[in-house]
Design a binder for these strands. Structure first.
Length: 277
DNA sequence: ACGCAGATGTCCT
DNA sequence: GGACATCTGCGTT
């Protein structure tokens, strides 16, 4: 859902460093994951007509999005993520689904708010420099995780900030509660399941072991086209959250969210007013 | 509704 | 040693 015209198909691959094959395979299956493949879906009749988003083989589920989706500049990828569905398959086969409603773009070396500012490359942020679709998961404040997806452009990526939970809500609630103090026994509201970058990591059981995995190939997580919407949703561009010390870069409108969605983590009324002139 | 302190590990100066 | 792409629970309007 383009808010602005972005470069579409005329891009060149291979701007990022090649990932070694051994690493790719090493991260295919998480440590502790069940060795046996998850139970197969019940056999379903093939639909009479097959849409372009659906696999022609043995499934009526939407196909996972591939490299051609992730290989675009960070701003257009951040916008393209909105409305797509993130799927997490747990070790027991349970599938959790959430529609992405809020993202942030981190542009790379020139972006003072990015971990890759100045071209810094460390063991922690190495996945920012890997091929588009690679996950960058890091620990923040000693106890939380944030999940990014590498985009086109060295050191550029997109932070996933909020999801609209679609499937597996009770499991998400359970996963979220595990990390909270047991003193308050109140169940979390649906809105509190995935409305924040670290909340969604808790709800989908995403931790450091997902760092450097390939979202186009990983067995435990992938991205699907979101269901068609009756209307093209309005997208708000606002300042990014939690990067106060990044000078002028803190003000740039590099956070994107679906206007009116109750699942967004931080609403920016001023940005919404400015946008509707 | 909003504000603030505290929790807690890792990276980087 | 300080900062950190955060969240929670408890306090005050």
């Amino acid at each position: 859902m383009p808010v602005r015209s972005g470069t579409q198909l005329s891009r060149k691959l291979g701007q990022k460093k090649q990932r070694r094959t051994s690493e790719a395979e090493q991260h295919q299956s998480p440590p502790g994951a069940s060795q046996t493949p998850p139970p197969k879906e019940p056999r379903l009749d093939l639909p009479m007509t097959l849409g372009p988003q659906r696999s022609i083989y043995f499934s009526n589920r939407p196909a996972r999005l591939g490299l051609e989706f992730f290989d675009q500049p960070p701003v257009s990828l951040a916008q393209a993520f909105l409305g797509q569905v993130l799927v997490r398959q747990l070790d027991d086969g349970t599938e959790l689904r959430g529609r992405i409603v809020e993202t942030e773009a981190y542009l790379g070396p020139e972006d003072e708010a990015a971990h890759s500012r100045g071209g810094r490359q460390t063991p922690r942020n190495r996945s920012m420099f890997m091929k588009p679709g690679t996950l960058y998961v890091y620990l923040i404040y000693g106890m939380y995780f944030c999940m990014n997806v590498s985009s086109q452009g060295d050191g550029a990526c997109v932070l996933l900030r909020a999801l609209e939970p679609l499937e597996g809500l009770e499991t998400m609630r359970q996963l979220r509660s595990t990390y909270r103090r047991a003193s308050t026994g109140r169940a979390l509201k649906d809105r509190d399941l995935c409305s924040g970058p670290s909340k969604l990591c808790q709800a989908l059981a995403i931790d450091k072991s997902f760092d450097q995995r390939d979202l186009t190939k990983d067995k435990a997580m992938w991205l699907e086209h979101g269901p068609p919407q009756p209307r093209e949703p309005a997208v708000v561009a606002a300042a990014r959250v939690g990067i106060g010390s990044a000078g002028e870069w803190a003000q740039k409108p590099l956070r994107f969210y679906i206007q009116g969605s109750p699942w967004v983590s931080v609403i920016d009324r001023a940005a919404e007013r400015d946008a509707q002139v």
